[in-house]
Design a protein around this nucleic acid. Structure first.
Lengths: 186, 186, 186, 186
DNA sequence: CATGAATGAGACTTCATTCAT
DNA sequence: TATGAATGAAGTCTCATTCAT
């Protein structure tokens, strides 16, 4: 992707998270990115197109960081932990992107088309839990509740280590995972 | 509190949650509340004072719904469950207020003074967990992590039942609590 | 005159001079005067009526301070000096009133009716210069030019002693008068 | 300078003089200048920046019209008369600019920085009077009083010829100068 | 007489977007 | 591609004035 286009996206991420959609002006995005306002509108027809592109971009980033196949040679718990860790790491290493997803997940500026596009590829990532039920390793809880338990925990854990970076170490990460695991495991 | 003032606050809650701070105009708040724009600014010097007042109000509501003393005649788990349930019920019965807290908890429009005022009274509510550690019923996890585990779970659980209201029944609530409890309990 | 009414007028004078007509709100006048906004409008139907009343008041003050009969026992110069001094003293002792007259003399908020009412009584004060021409003591200059020479000098002299109050003493006042007198006298 | 920017300044001068700072809306300035409101704020960040720029502009105009070197081949009186005339001509030919300076000279909208910038270059223009004292041609009056006598007279004289343009001719101008000259000369 | 809540027009300013260069 | 001057609708907030108490 073009340097200027990418620059605009990078700057937008930071500003949209810090000040919200309407709180960030296209003029400021352009200025911070070091381009003219006209240039911004050359790459993105409207401000909404910009934020929708950004949303897809970021969800794509997260997906890349998080995807991976189930490894039959390891235990189910190991497999779940790997996935959990990838999400946690993504959140810790990309706080702006993580926040962005949280904030704009249910915002009216992201069109339903965009949300749909972003969602489809995630479903397969979550298939892993079906294995857990098959293998009788996790509680008999319906899918949607597992998902929301998972997300709530990811959210809480990432928030925690972002707020208290001094607590971030392997021991505490493992501790946090145990809280999560003991919740869903049988 | 005055009728008109309260009307403005009620309308603001809905609109701020649905469209964000900058996405909601004072003109629209006033119009929806059935008062003149001047009246809004008669009660709140600025839009920021309005949202800060609203924030304190809503945190106050939540606190009222949630507070209560530890009952020594019941088990520790029972006590925790009661607190957890109060939060969940608050979230389910007041989805706008719950969302509002989530969205504006870390927004730049809420001053640090406001946040401070809102926070102080919450600390004591959470003291309950100290009992759990004393009684050796919950895992040896430091305070802040328990809190964030708790909040993440509340967030995930309320989100779940708000998204799928058809799943809301006693059985599922109990299920959700067991996920939470098995996570922190020894 | 009523205490509250007078208070409003006093406060208005100061604020109108410092911030201009539109720069001063009726709310601020009322607040500074220690009355409710409604009270202000009880005494003055509109903001314009207030400033017009004030204008007439102040011109009246100046006239009172300045009037006096020609004394045939003293020289013409003595008579002129007395008049000149009265104006200078009025300006120095009432800087706000003096400024107010300067500023609002040609403003659109003062109606022509008000100006007319204020002007009529001043004409006779100035009749003194006719004596000077009769007595052949001042230059053959037409009336309007004498008036404007006089006013320009009053303005310059008062401005001077207001800006540099440390220079205000009898010697310098006399000096200033000599500058004036040597200009018009033959 | 840009056409539109200059147009805005020209219109502002007229309106600020006729209706005052707060009495003139930016919308009206823009409309009268034939530009959009946004354009006004493209060139001037705020209404105050506009009036400050205007003030510096106008003081610069006056300075240009008025400056000139002392000519040793002519008498001191001739030199003073030339300076005096330049001010009078400026005032008569540019009544709006002259009024503007009078009105906004001591207004709170003009920042002290602006006033300072405008003042510095004027001091040297006035140095001429030092020659008069050296040459023993003018009265022994301290500097500041000469300046204020001068300004008062300029003000009075310009006001006069602006009010009564039918009196404006060489004879009356000379007459007015004699009033001034006889005042300060020995 | 006195109050101050309530009004809505209008003030200053910002902003997404366009278009000639 | 890239620019930034220009636009005018819309935003926040102020203000003179009214009126029920």
């Amino acid at each position: 992707m073009n340097d200027k286009k990418q620059g605009i996206l990078d700057v937008s991420l930071k500003l949209f998270v810090e000040r919200g959609f309407h709180g960030t002006s296209t003029a400021e995005i352009a200025k911070t990115a070091g381009v003219a306002t006209g240039t911004l509108f050359h790459y993105f027809k409207t401000k909404e197109e910009l934020i929708n592109t950004l949303y897809l971009n970021i969800k794509g980033c997260m997906l890349n960081d998080v995807k991976g196949n189930y490894n039959d040679k390891e235990s189910f718990k190991e497999n779940v932990k790997k996935l959990w860790l990838k999400f946690i790491n993504f959140g810790i290493n990309n706080p702006y992107k993580f926040q962005f997803i949280l904030i704009f997940h249910s915002s009216p500026y992201i069109t339903s088309l965009t949300k749909e596009q972003a969602e489809t590829r995630f479903v397969e990532v979550m298939e892993i839990y079906k294995k857990g039920i098959e293998k009788n390793e996790i509680k008999m809880v319906y899918n949607e509740m597992v998902m929301d338990y998972f997300w709530g925990n990811i959210f809480g854990t990432v928030s925690h280590f972002t707020k208290y970076p001094e607590n971030l170490n392997e021991k505490n990460i493992n501790l946090a995972f145990e809280l999560f695991w003991d919740g869903i495991s049988k």
